[in-house]
């Protein structure tokens, strides 16, 4: 995977966290924990990418 694909994955994970936390925190389930975990994982990708040797995408 190149950098842009991993960054896209980070973006999608962040976006996915939004409905999970909203629905989970306003309901009685623990879906918000899944949402928060997804957000944390997504946010970890960019700094990790900094230290990984991934090919850069080009236009």
């Amino acid at each position: 995977m190149d950098a842009i694909q991993l960054e896209t994955a980070a973006f999608l994970l962040m976006a996915l966290s939004l409905p999970l936390i909203s629905v989970g925190s306003t309901g009685s389930g623990s879906l918000w924990i899944v949402g928060f975990a997804v957000l944390v994982i997504g946010t970890m990708i960019p700094p990790i990418l900094r230290y990984m040797d991934t090919p850069q995408a080009t236009a």
Binding site: M14, A15, S17, L18, I21, S22, G24, S25, W32, I33, G35, F36, L39
Partner: peptide, 14 residues
């Protein structure tokens, strides 16, 4: 609390 942090984070995403 973690739940509050999750809510705050989701509001940030929004």
């Amino acid at each position: 609390p973690v739940r509050d942090l999750a809510v705050a984070s989701a509001k940030g995403v929004w």
